[in-house]
Each structure stands twice: as C-alpha cells, then as structure tokens.
C-alpha cells in the first residue's frame, strides 16, 4: 500500500487529493469490507429467516429441478423410490435438510451407511429441495429457531441424553461402533439444527425420537447439554477423545508402563 501511494506521489508531483490520497486505498478497502460484511449478514439473516417463513412456490419449483437433476436417479423422478433408494414421501423437510445439509446425501458410494462430508449444495438449494419434498407429503418440519438456542436445562438434557442417546453416541457424544461397519457418529461440532432434525427423523439406523417421545423442550435441553460439553473443557485434563477405558487404558499401558520400565532400566544399569 505504501509503495503504491509513493509511486502515485512520484508521477503526479505530490498531488494528494481525491483518489490519489494516501488514505484512499485504506478507505476503499474499508468500504469494500463493510459492504461485503453487511451483505453477508443480510444474506445469512434472510437465509435463516427463510427457514421459518412460508415456503414459496418458486422454492418448490427450484427444488423440483434440483431434485430431478441430483436425486431422481436413486429416489425416482416422483420421489417414490427405486431399488437404489427409498421413497421420500412423508420424510419431511427436516430429513432433507439434515441429509443434504450434512453432506450425507447425495451418497458418495454405497456402503454400510451414508458418511458425513462437505455439503454439496448451498443453503438455498438445500432449503428448496426440502420445500419440494415437503410439498409431496406431510412430514417433520425444519425446527424453529427457539429450540436451537442452547438455553435449556443442561442437567435434564444430560439425563435425557444418557437414557436415550448415550448407549450409541457415548456419554460425552464421542460416537461409537454399531454392527457390520455401521457406527453412531461423534456429535462434536454438529450444528444444533442437525441434531434436532436427526432426533425427529431418525436418519439411517438411528431410531426416531418424535415430539411425542421427547418434547421439543426436551430436545432443546439435549442440545443445551451437547453445547455445554463442547464449550466446557474437561476438568480432569486431556480427555483422550472421551472414549473411556479404551483410550485411557492404552495411554497408561504405553506411556505409564513405558516410563516405569525406562526408569527401572536406568536404575539397574551400570554407570560408565
């Protein structure tokens, strides 16, 4: 920046006004940053507002096009399902928003279960497809913002999590193995909206926890607990992946016993 403005000074005999002013570049960058930031903020707030506002016909049409182009191979042109993929009638907007929003759909390859990966579609595209699938048959909707604030009762959430979720997802949400290559994913870093949608829709082999089983407030409590886990460091020091006795045992067997053996050898060895 400094070299630019000094060059400008050299060619124009030190005229320091208008766009050649040394501060011009700085102010230009500031204006640019503010505009993009503001636009982004507006854009993202409208995107999240859209989540809860009415679905427009244009969104449904857009979603139908995206669906026909990206999903119909497996789920069928009318979403009625084929041999390769299940019917999407009644799965609801929440299911589409979860599967596509976490990158599980479209599947990269067939396997024991869909894997989380970077999402293949933007937020609007995902919402459009969700709107299209929801327009086919009623199903679980994308949750309201007020359940996703992580301002519920973390203690109750922890108890509900231990009863309903911990056997597969681990008590600290670190995930765990199921049968034949399937697994319950770790819950760290998962957006609250996706946690909520997974509970409502029961993706893949996860059971459904409908609002009749866990009320929306109870789901909000569970989300609060998960956020609490993420934001509060383990008081006992390094948690070693929160995997419990496996990683802790391995650590102490290798490093603890290793250190003891090393010290023993040192004590018994002859000094030179």
């Amino acid at each position: 920046m400094r070299t630019l403005s000094s060059q400008a000074r050299g060619t124009s005999n030190g005229r320091k006004s208008g766009r050649r002013h040394p501060l011009a570049t700085v102010s230009l960058i500031l204006v640019g940053l503010l505009t993009t930031g503001g636009a982004y903020a507006m854009f993202s707030s409208t995107a999240s507002a859209e989540t809860n506002t009415a679905v427009t016909q244009t969104m449904v049409d857009e979603g139908q096009k995206l669906f026909a182009a990206n999903c119909a191979t497996c789920h069928g042109l009318s979403a009625a399902g084929t041999e390769a993929g299940p019917s999407l009638y009644g799965v609801g907007a929440a299911s589409v928003h979860f599967q596509v929003g976490t990158g599980r759909m479209p599947l990269a390859a067939s396997g024991p279960q869909g894997q989380k990966k970077p999402p293949q579609f933007t937020d609007e595209q995902t919402l459009a497809m969700a709107a299209y699938v929801a327009s086919l048959a009623p199903g679980p909707e994308i949750p309201e913002e007020r359940w996703l604030q992580a301002d519920g009762d973390a203690t109750l959430g922890a108890e509900l999590f231990r009863v309903n979720c911990a056997m597969c997802h681990n008590v600290a949400g670190a995930g765990g193995a199921l049968t034949e290559g399937k697994y319950a994913p770790a819950l760290g870093g998962v957006q609250p909206v996706h946690v909520y949608e997974a509970m409502v829709t029961g993706p893949q082999n996860m059971p459904v926890f409908s609002d009749l089983n866990l009320s929306p407030q109870e789901k909000a409590d569970i989300i609060t607990y998960l956020q609490y886990l993420e934001n509060n460091p383990s008081p006992g020091g390094a948690d070693l992946g929160s995997l419990g006795p496996v990683s802790e045992g391995l650590f102490i067997w290798i490093f603890g016993l290793g250190a003891l053996v090393g010290v023993t050898i040192w004590i018994a060895s002859k000094a030179n």
Partner: peptide
C-alpha cells in the same frame, strides 16, 4: 426418566 405414561398412539414406527 420423567415417569410420564405412554399412549400407544405416541409410539410411532421406528421410534424407541
């Protein structure tokens, strides 16, 4: 853990 009774109609397919 809440101890609230369960209606048969609340147990939807696929839920536990």
């Amino acid at each position: 853990p809440t101890g609230t009774p369960i209606r048969a109609s609340e147990v939807t397919l696929g839920s536990v």
